[in-house]
Design a protein around this nucleic acid. Structure first.
Lengths: 250, 250
DNA sequence: TAAATAGTGTCTATGAGACACTATACA
DNA sequence: TGTATAGTGTCTCATAGACACTATTTA
């Protein structure tokens, strides 16, 4: 902050170019085996009619609080309650290139959210123009939001490897198969059922048994699966590494 | 950006509380086997006389460019040339809690830099109040900079595991021992020389041989080591995992 | 000559992944 | 009754780490 001298001496609210700070949220969920992202339709210029990430200006609140507030507004749910109580929110990155917003200098602090399958926001009134979109169809977004979604997807894929955050995509109780479906949806590739099962149970603190069993078996047959809930691990050790990433990534 | 309607309708430069965006850089280097961070001494209130991270207001430039500019100014070096040509810069996180700066709302985009051992900035004129400090003595900093340094250290430690960025701390040509010294300094623990040696050479693209041999052996004896330069890998596979982290980190 | 270091050899324990197999439940 | 799934057993290969050892260089 070595520019403070000049800053304090010459400060005048009108003399500096106005800057704004927003949060934009890359909210991910898995619906019907597909990884989906929450998008809103823009009504105003610029980019009117285009889809964009939900977001808005930061008020007198922390950045984390602003992200949670925006997510709650766009899903029509109440922060900290019900489905949103299990949401994982983390800061992704800040985007601030000059010209990324044609009106003025806007810095956007992007957040990444992992949510269990939420009710469709169309049902709500305030969030009527928000909806879940399969991530591969989330292209052509307003501003630089295509790049933000891509960065969020990269982060999400990596985080599933070494953290237990896949459990944030499922309900409070889940089967190993449901957890495997999350990995398959986020990574975009199937995993070997038997090896995945053994692996998940072998990682200390990843999941813990509830002692219960699912009420029904699989939709097309198969035994009733045991139920688990998230364990107390913050990191997976050893990690679940993605199978088909190119070695070395040159 | 759903608040744009109200934003555009009611916008008046003076009517909104002023916000500012700065970059602060956690610049790390290894000097004499110690991990050091670049700090500056503040001359102005608030926190006058306290140490802080180098940083300043973002101008009409990208965030990355602002971080590189600040780093160049505080080290007295020219961006993109000489020692700074090998610096690795990446965005760390953005800090924006209300009240983190007592004067106004300031959002700070923190950056993390890995630099080879640089000349002491005291020598320069413009950067006379900047100096490298062993990271364990970098406490009691201004603002929330203690927390930023801690977050940067966590990130740096993790990045050495799965990226070849340790090579950003050494010169263009280096021995395996020098690379091991970087790991030891950043992780704060010694590594087994023989196993480290074999491991580094076994990871595809981590380092490549120059064919040359160091001019001298070790300071206290030992054969002349072969020289290597950074390879073309972007990720280490398999990764070099830290030995003594607690399993699971509950 | 003593001590420290570069680099290699070898052994063991662990984990990833392939494959096979059973038991169970749904249509 | 056929088929899909839950969960387990087993084998192989790659890797981490412990330990030992030789060769080389400096003080």
């Amino acid at each position: 902050m070595r520019d403070e001298i000049e800053f304090l001496a010459g400060y005048d609210p009108g003399s500096y170019p106005a800057v704004a700070v927003t949060v934009d949220v890359v909210a991910l969920t898995v619906r019907d085996g597909q990884l989906c992202v929450l998008l809103v339709e823009r009504g105003e210029q610029p980019f009117a009619g285009r889809r964009a990430l939900p977001g808005g200006f930061v008020r007198d609140e922390s950045l984390d609080a602003a992200a949670l507030r925006e997510l709650a507004e766009e899903t029509g749910l109440r922060p900290g309650e019900g489905p949103l109580a299990r949401v994982h929110l983390e800061q992704l990155q800040t985007y601030g290139d000059p010209g990324r917003d044609p009106r003025m200098r806007v810095f956007s602090v992007a957040y990444l959210a992992f949510a269990p399958s939420l009710p469709d926001p169309r049902a709500g009134s305030d969030a009527a123009n928000a909806y879940w979109t399969p991530i591969e169809r989330a292209t052509g977004l307003a501003f630089d939001h295509d790049a933000i979604v891509a960065d969020g997807l990269d982060r999400a894929r990596a985080k599933l490897e070494y953290t237990p955050l896949a459990t944030a995509f499922v309900g409070g109780e889940f089967t190993i198969s449901e957890l495997r479906a999350v990995y398959a949806a986020v990574w975009g590739e199937d995993l070997h059922a038997g090896n995945f099962h053994r692996k998940v149970l072998s990682v200390p603190g990843f999941v813990e048994s509830t002692g219960e069993t699912a009420a029904r078996g699989g939709e097309r047959g198969g035994p009733k699966a045991k139920l688990y809930r998230a364990g107390d691990a913050q990191l997976l050790h050893p990690a679940l590494l993605r199978p088909t990433r190119e070695d070395g990534v040159r």
